[in-house]
């Protein structure tokens, strides 16, 4: 499957947007979390600053999000995991409301009740969960609904390689194959489940091989490359859309930051992240665009400025939005 010029431009711009978003967050997140502004004796204060709590960033993993979402429509469902920003951005989640949510603001997607691991945007059918592996059965449910409603919408479950050792993953694969559901399971293998290397957690090298146990195609994408993901996902999404059932894809990708911000990363060889950045998938895709005559220096600069403006506007919106009223904690337990 060949990407159209429009798809190439879209993927490139989205990757830049994701990277800009995550790099910005890596700085904003640290505001007021480091000495000397925090409790004496602490090296870091997770609950301080304008964006408190855990923060899992996806810089380096952009190809997975854009390579899959390039094939999706607004009425397709995406269920992400605890590291969700790249999927959300690629699924066109409202950037302002998403950012405000991370600042805990009343204008956030969840009015400040969810935070960065719990982003819900029903307008584009995006949700995610902080529980590893939990999204896979939920994507099956969305796919089941599409089937029952007679639409050709599909559902995508994104999760890390660590999730493939959860029971939920295996139950979901069996259900999806048994019921021939229009769902695609996408495993992001970023080599680490927090600190534990894949080889120390997973009995086989490629989770794609696990597909055979459920009678579905399993595809391994060995390069952290948007077009490679695009090709694999294109076939899987088309297969799901025409009613031929699920596919399992594993993508070998790179995590540039720690598991969470503040992670000392003592489990990683020194300089690994720096080395990974030598194989940045964004300039690689940029080179493809240039070779096709779709990009030059001026267009690149204009695009980056546009994206940067959009991202900055979202952070400004989040930062400047009001907090919810404290007693609003009592609202939204139940729908009226």
């Amino acid at each position: 499957m060949e990407a159209t010029a429009e798809q190439l431009r879209w993927m490139y711009e989205k990757m830049i947007e994701i990277r800009d978003y995550e790099e910005t967050m890596s700085r904003v997140y640290l505001e007021a979390k480091l000495p000397p502004k925090i409790q004496k004796g602490l090296a870091f204060d997770i609950g301080a600053g304008p964006v408190p709590g855990e923060m899992h960033l996806a810089a380096g993993q952009e190809p997975v999000a854009v390579g899959v979402c390039a094939h999706l429509r607004r009425d397709d469902t995406v269920v992400g995991a605890h590291r969700p920003h790249h999927f959300a951005i690629a699924k066109d989640v409202d950037l302002n409301a998403m950012t405000a949510e991370m600042f805990g603001k009343a204008t956030g997607l969840g009015r400040g009740k969810g935070g960065h691991m719990h982003l819900f945007d029903p307008a584009v059918k995006f949700s995610c969960s902080g529980i590893v592996g939990a999204g896979a059965p939920q994507a099956c449910g969305a796919a089941l609904a599409a089937k029952k409603l007679g639409t050709d919408a599909v559902a995508i479950a994104f999760f890390g390689e660590g999730a493939a050792n959860q029971g939920a993953f295996h139950e979901a694969l069996n259900l999806a194959a048994l019921w021939r559901l229009p769902v695609v399971f996408v495993v992001e293998d970023n080599k680490y489940g927090i600190s534990v290397e894949k080889s120390a957690s997973t009995a086989i090298a490629s989770n794609a091989d696990r597909a055979v146990a459920y009678g579905m195609p399993g595809v391994l994408v060995e390069r952290n490359d948007a077009l490679a993901v695009f090709t694999a996902a294109g076939e899987a999404v088309a297969r799901a859309r025409r009613g031929d059932g699920p596919t399992l894809i594993e993508v070998k990708t790179d995590r540039y930051f720690g598991h969470f911000q503040g992670d000392p990363e003592t489990y990683r060889p020194k300089g690994e992240a720096k080395e990974l950045r030598q194989h940045d998938p964004i300039p690689a895709l940029g080179a493809v665009l240039r070779a096709r005559g779709l990009l030059d220096d001026a267009a690149d600069a204009a695009l980056r400025a546009r994206v940067s403006g959009r991202v900055q506007a979202a952070y400004d919106f989040g930062r400047n939005s009001p907090y919810p009223e404290p007693q609003d904690a009592l609202l939204h337990v139940f729908a009226e």
């Binding site: 449910g141 409603l149 559902a155």
Partner: peptide, 16 residues
């Protein structure tokens, strides 16, 4: 496969 179908119930409910 209770995790599977309880999660699927949630996913289907989210779709209406």
């Amino acid at each position: 496969s209770e995790t599977g179908f309880m999660g699927a119930a949630l996913g289907a409910a989210a779709e209406g």
